[in-house]
């Protein structure tokens, strides 16, 4: 490396060499800010993502389904924690991040603003929503920021059961009565397009992506990931005997990929703006859960302080 290289150029060369950035290393301010925003949003998504599924824990159709769903939702809480921890290594304060979520200042994935009216939705979420999340998270295992990448490796290990349990739910319904099969189809109809939107705007309309790719925070573009997800998912839908609600979906021999119809980005931006079916319910539930936990946090503090005081007293007496 030449001496004339300034810090930013050096950083870029370091990242280009596939080296990981660790918390105390020098990094451009914008790199830190981008990561804090992305990681905290990711954390919020894990946390809010528990709500649509929690809706069905008490009504799961069997004990087997219930323990699986409970375990999955518990995993998502853990994922939130891994991610908040990763953001903390960048000097973000966890309380600030949580306050931003509760005040509505911070964003979380729009997908969780869709309702879960039937049991089949739990299957569709596991299969499609976790499936889309996995595509993104597998890519992020190779992100340039060390703590984020390590959190992703841990998360990916836990995710694969989430998708399998969802697919198994739909498989059971698809093989069931006509009404059950219809329920499965209906949930696919409702979750397909929002799942594709999870990857974000098309590449030409996602201006910040280029810098993230350059810093190797992101390793694949939104459209690449979306295509990957579609290619993987179409045969899975065929196996279920369900129809993907896109008349333009067809295999393109030349490209070696599926072509798909256009995505309703108006809907996407409406939901981001807060006009989705469940934005208000989700935030209300989140705020209430936080407020209802207040006494637990207070009690834990009081207990810790009492124990510490007792220990100090014993120490001085001895």
């Amino acid at each position: 490396m030449t001496k004339e290289m300034n810090l930013e150029e050096r950083f870029q060369a370091y990242v280009d060499g596939e080296n990981k950035v660790e918390p105390k290393d020098w990094m451009p301010d914008k790199y830190r800010k981008t990561l804090i925003r992305q990681i905290s949003q990711h954390a919020h998504s894990e946390v809010v993502g528990m709500l649509p599924e929690a809706n069905w824990i008490t009504r799961a159709p069997s004990l087997r389904r219930k323990v699986a769903l409970l375990a999955k939702v518990q995993d998502e809480a853990g994922h939130g924690l891994y991610l908040y921890s990763a953001a903390e290594t960048l000097a973000a304060d966890r309380k600030d991040m949580i306050d931003d979520l509760l005040s509505g200042k911070a964003k979380y994935s729009s997908i969780f603003n869709y309702p879960t009216p039937t049991w089949a939705d739990i299957g569709a979420i596991g299969w499609l929503v976790d499936g889309a999340a996995i595509a993104n998270q597998v890519m992020l295992c190779r992100t340039s920021y060390g703590p984020y990448s390590r959190a992703m490796v841990k998360i990916c290990k836990e995710e694969s059961f989430h998708q399998r349990q969802g697919y198994e739910i739909l498989l059971t319904l698809a093989k069931g009565t006509d009404a059950q099969k219809q329920m499965a189809q209906d949930s696919l109809n409702r979750w397909w397009w929002p799942s594709l939107m999870m990857f974000g705007p098309t590449d030409d309309l996602s201006p910040n992506s280029a810098q993230s790719m350059k810093w190797k925070i992101k390793r694949k573009s939104n459209d690449e990931l979306r295509q990957e997800f579609i290619d993987k998912t179409v045969p899975q839908a065929e196996y279920l005997g369900l129809t993907i609600p896109d008349p333009d979906l067809k295999w393109n021999e030349e490209r070696g990929h599926y072509d798909h119809g256009s995505i309703d980005w108006d809907e996407f931006y409406q939901v981001i703006k807060g006009n989705g079916k469940c934005n208000k319910i989700r935030m209300k539930a989140r705020r209430e859960a936080h407020a209802n936990g207040e006494w637990v946090r207070k009690a834990a503090n009081a207990y810790a302080e009492k124990q510490a005081a007792r220990k100090a007293q014993e120490g001085s007496a001895a």
Partner: peptide, 12 residues
Amino acid sequence: HVGSLHAPDAEM
């Protein structure tokens, strides 16, 4: 090392 967390004391 596997990660970090918040807690009011060692036991928690």
